[in-house]
Amino acid sequence: MATKSTNQKAWFFVVPVIILVAFNALIPLMTVVNYSVQETFGNNIFFFEGVKWFEQVLHSERFHASLLRQLSFTGIILAIEIPLGIAIALAMPKKGFWVSVCLVLMALPLLIPWNVVGAMWNIFALPDIGLLGRIINGIGFDYNFTQNPTAAWFTTILMDVWHWTSLVVLLAYAGLSSIPDAYFQAAKIDGAGAWAVFRHIQLPKMKRVLTIAILLRFMDSFMIYTEPFVLTGGGPGNTTTFLSIDLVKIALGQFDLGPAAAMSLIYFLIVLLVCWVFYTLMMKDEAQ
């Protein structure tokens, strides 16, 4: 990596980015902070309430429930997508025509608008006219994702695996293809088996890209809104109401701005905290 020189004039290069991002980030964030400490009865009249909403949100059963659902969802999809993505990347061809074919086809789900993904899976999983619904019912399970919570969870998770595993595959593949051939030849001479090669050569080389993969998948799955909203609408009941869905319900459905804003900030802080830990780990790794 190139060594950097100190130059304070570099700030001028960053100014346009700061202005654009600050306009989009700071003003709305201040609006949220404003709402989070005030009470309103309409007509633009506000009363200062201090930390009342934060206490209310932190003690509410509803918030705990959707946070728990969110954490379970994120945990489950990470546990499936990361190992699966690595396995597929390991099995991919190394070079030639088929690499491009694989990459293009695998990237396809990533470029479909999120509500189309939801609508597509809705059609795909309908118990009467959907292919997936028909197959599962045909095997002998009673499957209806609009009525049965287990089926709803199964469908939401399968949809996310379908949608995002490719991201992990592409990242892991990028990491794998940066390993020089000499490493594998050396391993062969030493008589290392497939597991030893994976454990001591491939996995360490993929460490950095896998950190990015986990970081991106954590962020995006923690913010998930559109796909489950279109697929299940958060139901049946509240069983697939994740944090973002709950937040939009409170903010736009019930128009409880104070609690919604307080919840927004707590939500944002959780994401920030986890990402900060990952980012620090990644930077420490890069510095080595």
């Binding site: 991002v21 989009n24 980030a25 003003i27 709305p28 964030l29 609006t31 949220v32 962020m219 923690f222 913010m223 809104y225 944090l243 973002s244 869905i245 937040l247 939009v248 903010a251 736009l252 701005l257 919604a260 927004s264 900030l265 939500y267 944002f268 994401v271 920030l272 990402c275």
Partner: peptide, 12 residues
């Protein structure tokens, strides 16, 4: 800002 959930910012 890449980490901010859009749902948080929709109304503002």
């Amino acid at each position: 800002n890449r980490m901010a959930p859009p749902a948080v910012f929709a109304l503002p």
